[in-house]
Design a binder for these strands. Structure first.
Length: 429
RNA sequence: GUGGGCGUAGCCCAGAGGCUUAAGGCGCCAGGUUGUGGCCCUGGAGAUCGAGGGUUCGAAUCCCUUCGCCCACCCCA
């Protein structure tokens, strides 16, 4: 038997309410803030990602789905959403519209990793970018939008952590200090951290090993090494966040895994911290667009993992709206009426009434049993006697009552139900 | 890539060497007479016991290999 490839999964009807709910809330929230949707291809020139994410990162080193197409081009299944949006920004001259350009996306992301709870090879992100404006007010807006999104969804007990990792001007100095501080501790560090000291000192800060955490605890803080501009930017952001009444915490050990981040970085995670707990994160990437061949263009973005959001919606037992389904079914006492049943159902549907039809040569009993199992409110029974008098039976399955009606009366009743909204199923769980 | 746990019907699972010709529950299908569901009763379909090899008179049960799933590390959404 074939199985879905490792790390991928089918989203069955049972889970679809979560997806449409999240998409609806994401879309509505973005509209509230003036972000417009953008969709980029599922694959891109491999170099786009190597260039933007950074050669030394895990994503580029071992997680990209890269392949040669028949024309010999190296293509990569998008492992993150920001670089493609920046590419589109440049390609379509979006620097010629009023800045910042506010864009959002809902898209599949691919990373070759060992799957585990909340981590998949194909997952989905809702993300957005504000490109072309250095103002810390934009940082605040981006963070606020994320917070608003989670709140609207109904998630509670979330933590917002922020940090500033400086710019290309002041970060090198900070990294020096960091390495200096760690030098005497090197023998006590875990093997991974010994490598990090060499290649990516920032990452020393978020090692989860107890032994390394100790050292990280009293390590020099990036915030204390910011240049004047970065410091002002960070201070202003914090003050804006306070104005917006966002309950943030400054986390000096918050760094992010992609190379392109500058200044503001932030993450949002559920209070009870676990593995892969971060549900969303983002940051500023003021040098990325230039790196991709554009003019220097400051920008900031955010992305959240849909699967992780769903995980938390379930954990917190947040009720989500059910997707509408018909609550009526046309059945018959004899297969001879199947044709009439199809016509009647067709007529109802043209009037906007969702209905099911029974299939197969089943007995009336079997058809009703099925209607019951599906939790339908009504069955419309086509039966000899009534049909010969130009009527059908409308049976209320919940009340176990039925009456004989003409097709016109039937339509009127069901259209009425439809308008009142009772002709759709609503409960869930 | 590394470590741990687990693989018996669509789902939950019993069975730990010969009464297993693999049990039960849910679900599915059908029936319980005349055109009507939900409860109950009866019947049915559905499992090469993840796969391959080995030990044995005999293996779902023991051994080896392999694949898959889950969880954790790394890292991230």
């Amino acid at each position: 038997m074939y199985q879905a490839p490792r790390g991928t999964s089918d989203i069955l009807p049972q889970d679809q309410p979560y997806w449409s709910y999240i998409e609806a809330v994401a879309t509505a929230t973005c509209r509230l803030y003036g972000y417009q949707r953008i969709d980029t291809p599922i694959f891109e020139d491999a170099r786009l990602f190597v260039r933007s994410i950074g050669e030394g990162t895990d994503i580029v080193e071992k997680e990209m789905y890269t392949f040669k197409d028949r024309g010999g081009d190296d293509l990569t299944l998008r492992p993150e959403g920001t670089a493609p949006v920046c590419r589109a920004y440049l390609e379509h001259g979006l620097f010629n519209v009023p800045q910042p350009v506010r864009l959002y996306y809902l898209s599949a992301i691919f990373r070759y990793e060992r799957p585990q709870s909340g981590r998949y090879r194909q997952h989905h992100q809702f993300g957005y970018e504000a490109i072309g404006d250095p103002d810390p007010a934009v940082d605040a807006e981006v963070i606020d939008l994320a917070w608003q999104f989670y709140r609207t969804l109904g998630l509670s007990d979330l933590n917002l952590q922020i940090n500033s990792i400086g710019c290309k001007g002041c970060r090198p100095g900070y990294l020096e200090k960091l390495k200096e501080y760690y030098t005497p501790n090197i023998p006590g560090l875990c093997a991974d951290c010994q490598g990090r000291w060499q290649r990516n000192p920032l990452r020393l800060l978020d090692c989860k090993k107890a032994s390394c955490q100790e050292a990280a605890g009293s390590a020099p803080k990036s915030e204390e090494c910011l240049c004047q501009e970065c410091r002002t930017h960070f201070d202003q952001l914090k003050s804006y966040l306070k104005s917006l009444e966002l309950p943030f915490q400054t986390n000096h050990r918050l760094v992010r895994g992609l190379d392109y981040y500058t200044r503001t970085v932030f993450e949002i995670q559920p209070e009870e911290e676990k593995a892969q707990s971060t549900i969303g994160g983002g940051g500023r990437y003021d040098d990325l667009i230039e790196e991709l061949g554009g003019r220097p263009t400051p920008a900031i973005g955010f992305a959240t993992g849909m699967e992780r959001v769903i995980l938390n919606l379930k954990k917190q037992e947040v009720p989500v709206p059910e997707v509408p389904r018909p609550t009526a079914m046309v059945v018959h006492t004899s297969p001879h009426f199947r044709d009439e049943g199809l016509k009647l159902a067709g007529r109802l549907r043209r009037q906007g009434v969702p209905v099911l039809t029974s299939t197969g040569a089943r007995s009336l009993k079997a058809q009703l049993r099925q209607a019951d199992a599906l939790g339908l409110n009504h069955t419309i029974i086509i039966a000899e006697d009534e049909w010969s008098r130009g009527t059908v039976i409308l049976r209320d399955m919940k009340k176990a009552e039925q009456k004989t009606v003409t097709p016109d009366e039937l339509s009127r009743f069901l259209v009425e139900e439809q308008v009142r909204g009772t002709n759709w199923t609503t409960p869930i769980h």
